[in-house]
């Protein structure tokens, strides 16, 4: 089973790298429950004019490889740059009129 690893720099989406890594038994323990889904591959929805919505099995880590605090299985990552909860979305894209479409 492949578990996607997402590296998010604390500054936001500019530091986001998506990377597939083999991880049989390599998950760190604390967030195990969130990382042990039914083997569903990670899927990323680029929400029009909004965040990146990530579902399935993945790890979310900082640039040092340490897992970021995470309390839910599915997360929305900021891509407008305005969130105060980066790397997570806080809905700010609506206030600044962020457009992902031309």
């Amino acid at each position: 089973m492949g578990v996607g690893t997402l590296v998010a720099a604390s500054l936001g989406i500019d530091g986001l790298v998506s990377d597939e890594s083999p991880s049989d038994g390599a998950d760190p323990a604390p967030m195990r429950s969130l990382n042990s889904g039914e083997g569903a591959p990670a899927s990323v929805v680029a929400c029009p004019n909004g965040p990146l919505l990530i579902r399935g099995d993945f790890e979310l880590v900082g640039p040092d490889g340490e897992e970021l605090p995470r309390t839910r299985r599915t997360v929305a990552l900021c891509r407008c740059g305005a969130s105060v909860l980066k790397p997570y979305c806080d809905g700010s894209h609506k206030l600044i009129g962020f457009r992902s479409e031309p």
């Binding site: 929400c47 965040p51 919505l53 309390t71 839910r72 599915t74 929305a76 909860l85 806080d90 809905g91």
Partner: peptide, 14 residues
């Protein structure tokens, strides 16, 4: 709710 509903609103709408 700030973080949760930024996720939920995308799932709920789409």
């Amino acid at each position: 709710h700030v973080e949760a509903d930024a996720v939920h609103e995308q799932i709920a709408g789409r």
